[in-house]
């Protein structure tokens, strides 16, 4: 039991350290250069709320570090609560979760073809001129 508790604590510490020190940026196509969203507006967009700009949210698959940071710093939810929320939305016929991508490259390729899409990725990734940052965590 003690070993189990220690393992849990270690996992928890690892998770919070990760989320605290690393950052992500929320990006879209350069066509939308100039728009800025608040953290609350991004949360609303990624939780299926109505967005005035008609933007399409894109996520990374569960397990990605950037997703964990996004969940923690933007949504303010754990992965488990995010999954519960989408199960509720999906099976009550209200909403669908954002489309998920395996890699940052695939996500960027999608935004290149679909300029209204909005995604997030690790802050340290260098972006080409095709994309603009609309929000950065600190």
């Amino acid at each position: 039991m003690r070993i189990f508790a220690a393992l849990v604590m270690q996992a928890l510490l690892a998770v919070s350290a990760n989320a605290d020190t690393q950052n992500i940026v929320v990006i879209t196509h350069q066509k939308h250069a100039g728009i800025e969203l608040t953290r609350n507006e991004i949360k609303n967009l990624f939780m299926g709320g109505v967005s005035t700009q008609q933007l399409e949210p894109l996520a990374l698959k569960p397990g990605a570090d950037a997703r964990l940071i996004f969940n923690t710093k933007i949504l303010g939810l754990t992965e488990s609560r995010v999954q519960s929320y989408w199960a509720q939305m999906h099976f009550s016929g209200r909403n669908k979760p954002p489309q998920e991508f395996e890699t940052v490259e695939a996500l960027l390729a999608y935004i290149q073809k679909n300029p209204n899409a909005v995604g997030y990725l690790p802050a340290e990734i260098e972006l080409s001129d095709d994309f603009v940052v609309i929000y950065a965590t600190q």
Partner: peptide, 9 residues
């Protein structure tokens, strides 16, 4: 409306 979806709560 999702009482049967125990995963959601």
């Amino acid at each position: 409306d999702i009482l049967d979806v125990g995963f959601a709560y």
